[in-house]
């Protein structure tokens, strides 16, 4: 399965819903999407990863790159993920200390207020 990306506006936040596989092949698409959003002035992002079936270190790199971009504009990047196999990847790499990870989009939006 390929990567799917959709975005929607929730107040001051942009929710990016990611589905499928984020790997060395598909990660550039996600990178472009995040760059486009920041270029368009969306500095508060919530990345919904509930539909992600596979994530590798290239995908982690793109998310960290996105975080750096929004932070440069005093923005935020929050993740939504409850899948154990994806959470494990963030834990192994120590990235749970870098990203706020929420159990739902509503939680992520509430935490931002």
């Amino acid at each position: 399965m390929d990567l799917s990306l959709t975005t929607r506006q929730e107040g001051t936040h942009t929710v990016v819903v990611v589905g499928g596989e984020i790997d060395v092949y598909t990660a550039p698409k996600l990178r472009e999407q995040l760059i486009d959003l920041v270029s368009a002035g969306s500095y508060h992002l919530v990345v919904d990863m509930e539909g992600v079936e596979f994530l590798d270190s290239t995908g982690l790199g793109v998310l960290v790159g996105g975080l750096k971009r929004v932070r440069a504009h005093e923005g935020s990047l929050r993740l939504v993920c409850t899948q154990e196999r994806i959470l494990k990847i963030f834990r192994i790499t120590g990235l749970t200390k870098v990203f706020p990870i929420h159990s739902s989009v509503e939680d992520a939006l509430a935490a931002s207020d």
Partner: peptide, 28 residues
């Protein structure tokens, strides 16, 4: 190397496209 360079995140003027330490994939 196993952890991303946290100090670099959010520092103005930091090259945002710096690749992560190659240790990230190996840490996995």
């Amino acid at each position: 190397g196993a952890e991303p360079d946290l100090a670099a995140i959010g520092v103005p003027g930091t090259e945002v496209d710096q690749p992560l330490p190659s240790g990230l994939g190996l840490a996995l």
